[in-house]
Design a protein around this nucleic acid. Structure first.
Lengths: 204, 204
DNA sequence: CGTGTTTTAGAGCGAACGATCTAAAACGGG
DNA sequence: CCCGTTTTAGATCGTTCGCTCTAAAACACG
């Protein structure tokens, strides 16, 4: 057969993800990537194609690793209302926890890489999944009498999605607890949902 | 004296702003700028210093031209409640009107250029102005009985700010009226404010 | 109409970019 | 134990980057 690979794909994708997360697509050079991934340029191009393809793989890695896990984590909540609150708490706490204030790679990519049609579609699809998650769980909360019915589950979900994205923008330049938690709490309160825990506590 | 400049500063700053708005800071080259501004590289560097300084000037130009004007436009509204609604309507309509889906240069810059400390402070200061605007006008609406007091004006303003920023992220990849207007309308409805006009109408 | 001063034009600087080339290295199968 | 295949390493490809250089051009002033 052939010479086996010396790298673990998950590990190097994680390293690439960190690079792109910190610097964005354009400002991250292939040399930055090679150093962080501990691979030579030739190995990177042999394994992943080009920089753009590597970025897409790193973004998929981020989505599977960070975003889908966050959804899965709150699915086990005792009530739909508590799930939404915990989701927002998670977003706020992770935003404040990062000393580099990198925000969310999905949001950063949506803003930076939207000129790439293929990328834009992938990002749109992911955002639709989040909207659908909010819609489903908010509808359940409404049915259980735990959330207001002053707005439809559709619009309430859109509002929650926009709020989360807005918090992820704000944390890039104003990583301030009062600001981020205030925005989240107002959304929760107005929807009739429980507020964030008093002290910032990051579950798990 | 000396040879007079052949360019109008406002005109070339507008051209530079368009470049950065479309492509972002990193992806816009000095040659792109020179072509769009109709100036030679030497003239640009003589007049503005370097690329980063030009970007700051272009961003200031955008803020004065687009954002401050939007605030000034809604200040003349008959009621504070109507002013907030018109502001959100303005954001939604401009988001949908742009065939390039460039969103908001302030938001794009907050996400891309937050690693630059000086830039981050300038962006944070600008976002604070928007928060203060929402806070002031929401407090007035509450005092007039036009908005709910279920949340404080402080948190309500933070929520409105996050919603606007979120809409600006969404419009980059999902320029969909139902999505953007739904998010805005949910925020307005929950705050007890009038909804957006039924048909998308861009005032003035 | 020189003279001094600033802005133009356009070539081009060194550095960094994304990507590739040549070989050596590391395996499994016959 | 070579053979075929793939991955490594490191140099380096051509291009583009941000930026600067030399001169000519365009004014105000004495």
């Amino acid at each position: 057969m052939a010479r086996p690979r010396e790298f673990d794909e998950g590990t190097v994708l994680d390293a690439a993800m960190q690079c792109f997360w910190t610097g964005g697509f354009e400002a991250t050079s292939t040399r930055d990537l090679a150093e962080r991934m501990r691979m030579t340029p030739a190995s990177i191009y042999n394994a992943f194609g080009d920089k753009r393809a590597l970025f897409r793989r790193a973004l998929d890695h981020y989505i599977a690793q960070t975003l889908h896990k966050r959804i899965a984590r709150v699915e086990g909540c005792p009530s739909p209302a508590a799930a939404i609150t915990q989701f927002l708490n998670d977003v706020v706490e992770r935003s404040l926890d990062d000393p580099q204030n990198r925000g969310c790679l999905l949001v950063n990519s949506a803003v930076e890489a939207s000129h790439d049609a293929e990328m834009r579609e992938a990002l749109a699809g992911e955002l639709e999944q989040y909207e659908a998650f909010f819609r489903r769980i908010l509808a359940a909360a409404q049915a259980a009498g735990e959330a207001t019915t002053a707005v439809s589950a559709e619009d309430g979900a859109r509002q929650l999605l926009a709020t989360v994205l807005g918090i992820r923008v704000l944390c890039r330049v104003r990583p301030d607890r009062d600001l981020l938690a205030g925005a989240a709490n107002a959304a929760l309160t107005l929807l009739g949902l429980p507020p964030l825990p008093a002290n910032g506590t990051l579950s798990e």
